[in-house]
Design a protein around this nucleic acid. Structure first.
Lengths: 120, 120
DNA sequence: GCTTGACCTAAAGCAGCTTCAGGTCGGTAT
DNA sequence: ATACCGACCTGAAGCTGCTTTAGGTCAAGC
C-alpha cells in the first residue's frame, strides 16, 4: 500500500504519516527498491489506530505510550483502558473550558446587542 | 500597578503579559525610573479585555485586529460584533469536534469493557 | 525528450506561549 | 557590611503537532 492510500484511508495527511513514523509513533515502515514506503495491512491498521487516538485529542506522548502497550499484547488492556480514561477526563476538561468560553462570548454578544440598540 | 498585580487580576501569566506587549496586542506599557512596567488602569482594562478574548479562543491575530477596532471607538461596534460572531462560530466548530472525539472515545471504552469482561 | 505527478529528505516555519540564562534592583537577616 | 532573597528585566531557545518549503529521484504519458 502506498502512503497516499494510507492517507486516504486514515484521514491523516501524507506529511503527518511521515511525521508519525519519524517520531516513533509507529514502527518503521518497510521500503520498496525505490526507497518508497510500502505499508502492510498491519501498518495501515496501526495508523488507523493512531488517527482515532489523535481524534480523541490524545497527545503524541500518550499515543506513543499507548501504541507501545498495544504492541505488548492483550495483557496491557487494563493499562490501555486507564490511559483512555485519563484521556477522557482531559477531554471533559477541554469541553468544560469551551463551555465557559461560549458563555463569555454569549454574554459579550448580548452586551453588544444592547449597546447597539441604545445607539439606534 | 505592577505586572504581578495585573497578572493576578487578569489571570494571564507574567510572561504572557510581556509577550502580549511585545507582540503589539496592547500598547507599549509605561516604565518607571527603574525600567519596570507601570500599568495604568486603562492598560489593566485592556489586558482584561485581551484575557477574555483569549478565553473565547480567539487567535492573537484576531485579538490584535479587535483591539485596534476597540481603540478606534464606538463607530466600530458593528465590526467588533461581526468579529465576535465569527469567533463564536469557530467555537461551535471546536465544540462539535470535541463532541465527536468524546463519542469515539466512549465507543472505544465500551469496546474495552466488553473485551475485558470476556477475558475474566 | 520533456513535462507531470507521486514519492523522498532535511530543515524551517507556525501559534502561543513557557522556560532558560543571565543580569539589575531593593529589602532584610546576620 | 555582606550575603541572600524575590520581583523585575531582556533576548533567545524550547515546546507541541504539524505544515510548508526547498531540492531531488523516478516512472509514466504526450
Amino acid at each position: 500500500m502506498k502512503i497516499s492510500e494510507v492517507a486516504h484511508r486514515t484521514g491523516l495527511s501524507v506529511p503527518t504519516i511521515r511525521f508519525y513514523e519519524k517520531s516513533g509513533l509507529c514502527p518503521p515502515i518497510a521500503r520498496g527498491a525505490d526507497g518508497k514506503r510500502v505499508f502492510s495491512k498491519t501498518d495501515a491498521d496501526w495508523l488507523d489506530l493512531l488517527a482515532s487516538l489523535r481524534a480523541t485529542g490524545m497527545t503524541t506522548g500518550n499515543m506513543r505510550a499507548f501504541a507501545q502497550l498495544y504492541a505488548l499484547g492483550d495483557d496491557t488492556l487494563p493499562e490501555r483502558k486507564a490511559a483512555l480514561l485519563k484521556d477522557q477526563q482531559s477531554l471533559q476538561h477541554r469541553q468544560a473550558d469551551l463551555d465557559r468560553c461560549r458563555k463569555i462570548l454569549d454574554r459579550k454578544l448580548r452586551l453588544y446587542d444592547e449597546t447597539m440598540k441604545d445607539q439606534i
